[in-house]
Amino acid sequence: MIDARELTKRYGSTVAVDGLSFEVRGGHVTGFLGPNGAGKSTTMRMMLGLDHPTEGSVLIDGTPYGQLKHPLRKVGALLDAKAVHGGRTARDHLLCLAQSNGIPASRVTEVLAVTGLTEVARRRVGGFSLGMSQRLGIAAALLGDPEILLFDEPVNGLDPEGILWIRTLMRNLAAEGRTVFVSSHLMSEMAQTADHLIVIGKGRLIADTSTAEFISRSSQGYVRVRSPRLPDLARLLDGATGDGTAGGRAGDGTAGDRAAGVTLHGDHLRVTGMTAAAVGEAAAGAGLALHELAEVAPSLEAAYMELTRESTEYAGAGEGAERGRTREDGEYEDGEYMEVTS
C-alpha cells in the first residue's frame, strides 16, 4: 500500500504539488489522472525518493522509499523509458540493476523473455525504438517481482499493439493482487485500464473515487435530435423539460443536480433531462417529423474535461479554453471517445 500524506512540492514561488493526500491499495489498477503540468510526475518522483517533498511524506507499506533495503524487490517503477545509458546492452542494463538489489542473474533472463526482448538482449539500448525502450523499462520494473508497480505515462508514443500489451500487463499484475499505480493525461486510456481514479489538477486532489462512480457523478448524457422543423421542436421540448412532465432523465438517472434543458447545436438539438423515448413521444404528439433521435451516453473524457477545466494551466486563457470546449463537442458529435494527444 502507498500512503501519501500532505505531499507538497514548491519550486520557488511555484507550487507543483499542493497538500496531496491519498492511498493506493493492492489488487486493482489505480489511475493517476491529471492534465499535463498537473504535478503527476513530480508526485511520482517524490513517491520514489528522487525528489524531496517540501512538506509531507510518502510511505510504502509504512516505510519511506529511501529506507527500503532492496527497493526493487518491493517497488517496480517505469518513469522515463529513455532514462538508460544508450551504450549498454539490454542485458547489462538489467544485470547492473539486479546486482544492486541482490537479485539473481537468472531473473534478468526471465524478465527479458516476459517482455519479449530476448532476441535483442545483447544489443545496445541506444538503438532501441520507443516501444522496445518501454519494454526494457517494464522489464526493469518487473525485475524484483515487486508487489507495487508505478508507471508514469506508460503508453505515451506507443503503437496500438504496444498500448494493448501494456494494458493487458497492468490488468494481469493487478489481478495477481499487486498494487498498480499508473499515471496518464488520457482519460480514455484510464477508462480502459483503471478501476480506481485519483484525479489531480494544479497539484491538488480533485477526485479519489472508483472509475464508474467518477463518470456517473460528474457527467451527464443527452439526447440528440434532428428535425426539419427544429425551432418548433425546440419550443415544444423546452416546455416539456421545463414543467416536469418530461418523463425521466436521459442517461441512467444519475445526472443528479443537472438542469434539464434544450440547446441548439448547428443542425440538431441536445436535450437533457429527457429520455429518447420521451422526446420521440412528444414529437409524435405534436406531429413533428424527426430525422434523428439518439441517446448519447456520458463520456469519461467529457467528465474529465469538465472536472479539470478549472485546473488546467491554460484555463481561462481565451483561445486555450475555447479549444478545450471544441474538442469536447467533437466527442459528443461522434458519440464516443476521441484520443486527445498533445
Binding site: 517503477a77 538508460v84 545509458h85
Partner: peptide
C-alpha cells in the same frame, strides 16, 4: 556524468536510494 546525461541516474537511484 554519463548517468546524468542519459537520465540513467534516476534508474540508478531507484535501485540504490542510499
Amino acid at each position: 556524468g554519463g548517468e546524468y546525461r542519459t537520465g540513467m541516474i534516476r534508474t540508478t537511484l531507484l535501485a540504490v536510494p542510499g
